[in-house]
Design a protein around this nucleic acid. Structure first.
Lengths: 225, 225
DNA sequence: CGGACCTCTCAGCGGATTCTCAGCGCCGAG
DNA sequence: CTCGGCGCTGAGAATCCGCTGAGAGGTCCG
């Protein structure tokens, strides 16, 4: 499994490079657009990880050039929330899949595997509970069509609850799934963050998606409350 | 069907190895945590049988490392009754299924088959008695399609009765099974909670799922009363 | 450096839950 | 039919648990 990675931020490039290597990929790393085009044309990769913000040629141009040259290697794009193309859906740019920074490393690996296996993108995962939706790819939460901005922790908690929607999950399960595995603080944090979430996703909409199961934990109502 | 087995007790490892081979599995055997991580990362197994007590890296750490590297092979954990993690439910550690030593060999084979087939743990059953249902994972009780909310104690009692539905269970058995093992209060609590339960699951539906067997205990009617 | 934001801790409140208790009534044995 | 015991019941005390507001520390960014 050969991966070409195009990324100019050295720290990020290094982290991901090491991680992907550990995950069993053979990784080649280039730092700008010109080298990316050259490498991708010259060698055969199973998949290309392509940052949008690059010196010399941006990711969009790189992709365009490759396709024009008949290079159809699947491309996973990395987009930033606040970049030049922040509003753009990377699919429109011709990418096979994309992730928004910051992204989960595990998600990256899973997407790469999917791209390689199917030669196509993993179907975008959107979790829903009634009129509440969470787009895992974009880290975007909406209710009733209105976007809701969440902090990372709030987002993690909501994603966890939505992945288990309908199930009653205990506070310790939530801690294990959302917080650092080594976290050993007061489980009261969970209550606090449930409160924060409710203030953002329930109260303004006069709904009760997050139910308290006293003595047991919490449960996200699959119908959205 | 390829199985990676991680077990350091030679005798046990040998027995199970032979048995699984006879059952049609291709078994690879390693004896410590480091080799387990290496083998599981390098090769593709259908399922991993992982002992908790291991030299170098314990099973918990092995599992953690594998998941962190994006290896999502289903894991069945072997736990001992009296080990460091005896109290812990192995699901909390991220295992897909687990068995407590000593275990029945046939049970092991059945669980492995289930894990491979579904790529996930065997889902605990939904207990039913007539139109009364109790979903263990969702912690949800319904009668006649209507959801019934129970307090933790009430729920524990009902689950116990439903697991023994059709049997007559004495108050002391109930106390031992539902209350804290060290509980030494008045057995009258059981009567009190039976009453609470009846008020919620029987009275509103004009049924009698919970029968009193005078001098003996209680019995949950498998037909729902 | 200062401000905005985020994460987490803490302690008090109040409602929900658990359990005790004492009296009542029904069941079944003789 | 009578009586003793077992289970039922309502009330209430004690405890638990989740909710909440305030705020301390940390981090990021200008």
């Amino acid at each position: 499994m050969r991966v070409l990675m195009v990324e100019d931020e050295l720290r990020l490039a290094d982290t991901v490079h090491r991680g992907l290597t550990d995950a069993g990929f053979v990784v080649e790393l280039v730092h700008d657009g010109e080298n990316a085009v050259w490498a991708a044309t010259e060698h055969n990769y199973d998949v290309i990880v392509l940052d949008i913000m690059l010196p010399k040629l941006n990711g969009y141009r790189v992709l365009e050039l490759l396709r024009a040259r008949g290079v159809w290697t699947p491309v996973l794009m990395l987009t930033a929330k606040d970049g030049e193309y922040d509003q753009t859906d990377a699919f429109d740019l011709g990418a096979d899949d994309y992730l928004t920074k910051p992204f989960s490393f595990l998600v990256l690996v899973a997407r790469l595997r999917a791209l390689i296996r199917r030669g196509g993108p993993e179907r975008p995962v959107v979790l829903t509970a009634g009129d509440l939706t969470l787009d895992v790819t974009r880290r975007r939460v909406e209710r009733n069509g209105r976007e809701i901005t969440l902090t990372p922790r709030e987002y993690g908690l909501l994603e966890f609850l939505m992945r288990h929607r309908g199930d009653t999950v205990s506070k310790s399960e939530i801690l294990a799934g959302v917080w650092d595995p080594a976290f050993d603080g007061d489980p009261n944090v969970v209550e606090v963050y449930v409160r924060y979430l409710r203030k953002k996703i329930d109260t303004p909409f006069a709904r009760h998606a997050i139910e308290t199961i006293r003595g047991m934990g919490y449960r996200l109502n699959p119908e959205g409350g």
